[in-house]
Design a protein around this nucleic acid. Sequence first.
DNA 1: TTACAAGTTCAAGTCGACTTGAGGTCAAGA
DNA 2: TCTTGACCTCAAGTCGACTTGAACTTGTAA
Lengths: 137, 137
Amino acid sequence: MPPGTIDIAEVSRRAGLPASTLRYYEEKGLIRSVGRNGLRRLFDANVINRLALISLGRHAGFTLDEIGEMFTENGTPRIDRSELLEKADDLDRTIKKLTAMRDGLRHAADCPAPSHLECPTFRRLVDLAGKRPPGRG
Amino acid sequence: MPPGTIDIAEVSRRAGLPASTLRYYEEKGLIRSVGRNGLRRLFDANVINRLALISLGRHAGFTLDEIGEMFTENGTPRIDRSELLEKADDLDRTIKKLTAMRDGLRHAADCPAPSHLECPTFRRLVDLAGKRPPGRG
DNA sequence: TTACAAGTTCAAGTCGACTTGAGGTCAAGA
DNA sequence: TCTTGACCTCAAGTCGACTTGAACTTGTAA
């Protein structure tokens, strides 16, 4: 094993991701292995950074494909600033909704009204939830 | 059409959900139609409340199955208070993460470092993103 | 040198929440 | 009465991100 390289088990251990996920990410072009030891993939140690970046992107709500487009040829991140700001605004909206939701849930938990539907605070919450369901199918 | 009842198109219009979703929800036992006009479902007008409640639950991160268990026989909400508080705490954690994420994105958008990876603030963000990806597969 | 744990490939399966399509019915307006 | 378009059922398809399974290879410890 050439110096500076690590095998998939080590990447898995350090990144906290199963090997199957790492193979999947490589197949999608999100990470690269730098060689083989027999059959076995060898990764450059900096793949860990890259994985952290990918994790970040996932948390921020980007799809894997979108994340894939955020890396340049040479592997450094290429990030569109206006796209970042847009995502930040998205997050802001989500945060506001979730915050209202959290407060509403806490209220509901010790609301004295016989049925939640009879409690004005709860009803406001219900209205706030809006029409369209969240998340993806 | 008996008074007080509405057809699926009306429910769809009022709730902002496609008819296919309403049929799906009925199949899952989340809502009930009160009769038929020929083939066509008739709903009690209060199904709208129920749908708002379902939407609320979805936003709060419950699955449809979990939501289904939150209704009593007679159709009124049966909500476990400790479960609500638990969900509220979940939301709280999510909100904290998203907030850090949002701030980090905004920072990254006008960070002067040549590569984001060289910026300490960005690196802190990357670390914060943690190992495990969010959301569901 | 041999066993074997840990790697490999490739195809297919999974999960939740719906959507879509084919083929059929029927209430209501012209 | 006829047409039509909204509704119906049921089965199958979709989406993203992985996971799982079967069958195979190989570096390494004993």
